[in-house]
Structures are given as C-alpha cells and as structure tokens.
Design a protein around this nucleic acid. Structure first.
Length: 341
DNA sequence: AAATCAGACAACCGCAAGCAG
DNA sequence: GCTGCTTGCGGTTGTCTGATT
C-alpha cells in the first residue's frame, strides 16, 4: 500500500542512544507513561522516531529488566521454549518476565544456537523429522502464518486448527517447563546472580543502563550507590554533563509515577508497581494470557519479581494451577497432533 | 603499537495485526 | 467494510569491543 515510514528520515537521529536522550525519554515517560509513542518525539524534542523511542524503552529503559548473563535455568527454558514455540521470541520472553524478546533473541543467535548445533551435530539426521519442526518457522505470529511450521500448513490451517495448535503449544511449553524444573529441581529458585553479572563487561553506554540511575539521583531515592562502580565506565565513550532537557529539569516529585524505579540494576528495583501505572496495563499477548500474575506487568513493564518471588515460582504456580487441565490439553494435543506435526 | 578479526548486542527495518474513525 | 494510524514482532544490520596476529 506504500505506507509511509513511521517517521521521515530527515532529521531523525539513528544509532546508539546517548545518556541525554535516555534521560529525556525516561523523564517523559515518568510523567506521561508509556504509550502514544507517536507523540513522544515531538513532545520531548528527541530527534528519534517513535519506533526507536518505544524500542529503547521496551528493551532497555523499562523497569524490571534484568541484564547480564543468562542463568543456566534461563538458558534451559529458552532452549525448551524455542524448541516448542519456534522463534516466537515475544512468546518466549513472556515466560522470562525479566528478559526482553530482543535479549533472548540475541542470546539465542549468538550463544544457544551454536551451542545446540554443536551438540546436535551428529544427530541431525535422526532429528530431521518431528522434533525440530520449529526450524521451519518463518513468521509465526498472526494471520495465515500464525504458528505455521511449514508453508503448506500455513495455507491450509483453519482458525480452529490454529487455536488448537496454540493451545497445544502452550501445553507443550508447560511440559517443557516442568521438565526444565525437574531437571534441576534444586535450583528451582534462580541462583543468585552476583551483582557483577548485572553490569556487562562492555563499557559502552548502551550496556550500562544503570548509568541512567546515576544520572537521575532524584529518581533513585531508595537506591544505594550500588550503581556507581559499574557506571564509571560510561565516561569512556559518551560525553555528557549537564544534559537534562530544559523541558524536564528534574522529575517532579508528584509525577506520573513517583514510585517508578528503574531497574538498571536489580537491586535498584522496587516493587511498587501494583500501585502505579503498570497495574493497569492490559495484556494482549496470547501466551501471556495464561499467566494472570505475570500478565499484569508484561505489557510495558517486566518488573523485577525476584525480590518478592523468584520468577520460577510464578511458573511453578502456573504449572500447578493448570495441572488439572493438563490431561485434557494433552488429549487434545494428541488428537490434533496428526494435523500439526 | 597497529591492524585485523570475530563475537556480542543494540538498533533498525519491514511486515502485519489491532483499532478507531 | 474500508482506510489510515499505531503498535508489536521477528529478521537483519551496524557498531563496538576484546582477542589475536
């Protein structure tokens, strides 16, 4: 249809975000809440397109995002879920509330894929049929391609089939999680990440989002100076100083979300979300809808839940709550498996 | 010390769904 | 039902960094 790009290319800045831009964006969102991205560039003066703003917020500035190394448990879950759901990173990310789809995708592409390729090097032939149906995924979401594992099935799969397929996927994901949990039952609580893991080894700004916390002392009232050590690296590549947009000299104490704390570092996150904007977020992701507890947050926020409850506890609870329905789902999935696999 | 290479990951692009008018 | 806008998603690219030569 020739839809114009989300933003005109002229005067739109691209490339890595600077601390200044982050502060402007965060400041704006703190006052207005995420959403209405179209108006963000014009309202903030950022020379970024709305898409870029949304992405920056979603992947890096949003509270509750855990950065740094993936734990073994997370790795297992990703592998299981990827095997079952294919490259539906958003769906996979919904099972890892503290990780973004982009993060998971990158981790998969740079680490796990190679790892599995090595492991499966010799056994590929026997796995060609059945087990690795996800390898045929291209675009799984929505419409005709939703959940398709082969082009031919995409064309012929009816909506009913798709819905059953989706349920099957969900069920299988649950099974995978059960397996993952049972594989390493002792570590059912995620192993504590040493703080050093939270700040990556990279000295680039973008990898050190906690720097924003340092730049926003007023917002981090309850934060300790924990971010200072790692944040020193920010000085390397980005220059900054008095950088806050005059429009947003400092966040007002009674702004849209005074309790909003930014989780650049795990120990900076506070779980006040139930009283703030995020508790009102709806959730449209299919896979998220199966987990009411997590779905509350996952639209715009994936708050750090470690402090209140280990992430896997959510999964466990979900698994156990749903246990009563599993046999039905299993029957259904078996019935339909001939069509799908 | 400089050049080159490879890995990691942040960011961009295009497509498609959802929604409002 | 149609159209245009906004948002979400996944694939891909670009950039940065550390390791190696």
């Amino acid at each position: 249809m020739g839809r114009p790009p989300c933003c005109d290319k002229i005067g739109v800045k691209k490339g890595p975000w600077t601390p200044e831009e982050d502060i402007i964006l965060v400041s704006y969102i703190q006052q207005n809440g995420p959403g209405n991205w179209r108006s963000v560039p014009s309202n903030t003066g950022l020379l970024r397109c709305s898409k870029s703003c949304r992405l920056r917020w979603t992947n890096y500035l949003r509270p509750g995002i855990k950065r740094g190394n993936f734990t073994e448990q997370e790795e297992k879950m990703i592998i299981h879920l990827q095997a079952l759901l294919g490259n539906r990173w958003a769906a996979i990310a919904s099972y890892l509330p503290q990780r973004t789809d982009n993060d998971i995708k990158n981790y998969w592409n740079t680490h796990l894929k190679k790892k599995l390729e090595k492991q499966n090097g010799d056994s590929d032939q026997e796995n060609d049929h059945g087990h690795h149906h996800h390898h045929h995924n291209h675009r799984h979401r929505h419409g005709s391609s939703k959940g398709c594992h082969s082009p031919s099935s995409c064309e012929t799969m009816s909506k009913g089939q798709w819905e059953r397929r989706l349920q099957t996927d969900i069920h299988m994901a649950k099974q995978a999680l059960c397996e993952a949990l049972s594989i390493d039952n002792k570590s059912i609580n995620l192993p504590d990440l040493p703080p050093s893991n939270q700040s990556t080894t990279s000295s680039s700004y973008a990898s050190s989002a906690e720097n924003i916390a340092r730049l926003l002392p007023n917002w981090m009232n309850s934060s300790k100076k924990s971010s200072q050590t790692s944040s020193e690296s920010v000085e390397t590549t980005q220059t900054r100083s008095s950088l806050i947009n005059p429009k947003f000299p400092s966040p007002p104490s009674e702004s849209y979300d005074n309790s909003l704390q930014f989780g650049y570092n795990n120990n900076l996150v506070h779980n006040n979300h139930k009283n703030n904007y995020y508790s009102n977020c709806s959730n449209s992701d299919v896979s998220q809808s199966v987990s009411p507890e997590t779905s509350v947050y996952q639209d715009e926020s994936k708050p750090n839940m470690e402090e209140q409850m280990p992430p896997l506890s959510y999964l466990e609870k979900w698994l156990f709550d749903e246990a009563a329905t599993q046999s039905d789902l299993m029957n259904m999935s078996l019935e339909g498996s001939g069509d799908f696999f």
